[in-house]
Amino acid sequence: MTLVKVNARDIIIEASDGAATPTWAEIGGLTSVTVNASENEETADTTDFDSDGAYEQDIMQRGATLEMEGFLKKDDATGVLDPGQAQVTTNAGQDALGVASHAMYRFRYPVDDTWTVWDATTTVGEQGGGNNDKTSFNATLTRSGRSTTEAVV
């Protein structure tokens, strides 16, 4: 076994269509991805007089987010959005409220033999750019519940 540095750009993120047998669409055009494994974490201060002046805490809630940024990608002949970006946009639909606001995502690196799978809510950020920019695409996935895994097949 040789330990290697993992390229951030090699991450694979896929969005599910929510079907009983899901179709997964890889999200294209990404230039930056950040997974924050402690977002929405909540703690309880358990420091008391017996702590001898040392802070103590318990973690009461775990959370996580995945933020992605990139370029909006469309087919130059049809105008059809990149399949993954289209699924993210659908998952974040303005009518997607309550339980309908949840969608499934999975991500991994090529060296991984399992996917990390999230039930997550989806927030699509601002799109646009300046005079000499390409149009941006960005979204934040906020995990709901615990992560699960599934084998890469």
Score class of each variant (00 low, 15 high):
T2V: 13
V6D: 15
N7Y: 10
D10S: 15
D10G: 06
I12K: 14
I13T: 11
E14H: 03
A15Q: 07
A20N: 11
T23Q: 12
A25P: 04
I27C: 04
G28H: 07
T31W: 14
S32N: 15
S32Q: 14
V33P: 01
V33D: 02
S38G: 12
E39F: 03
E41T: 08
E42D: 14
A44S: 12
T47K: 03
D48E: 01
D50E: 09
S51E: 13
Y55W: 09
Y55K: 10
E56R: 02
E56A: 02
Q57D: 01
Q57V: 08
D58T: 00
G63W: 15
T65D: 15
E67T: 09
M68R: 02
E69H: 04
G70L: 08
F71H: 01
L72M: 15
A77Q: 10
A77R: 08
T78H: 02
T78D: 01
V80D: 15
Q85R: 05
V88R: 00
T89W: 00
N91H: 01
N91C: 08
G93T: 05
D95H: 10
D95Y: 13
G98S: 07
G98D: 10
A100W: 08
H102P: 00
A103Q: 15
A103H: 03
Y109C: 06
W115F: 14
W115L: 13
A120H: 12
T122W: 08
T122M: 01
Q127T: 11
G128K: 10
G128N: 06
N131L: 15
K134G: 03
F137C: 00
F137Y: 10
N138S: 08
T142M: 04
G145R: 07
G145E: 05
S147L: 05
T148N: 01
T148L: 12
A151G: 09
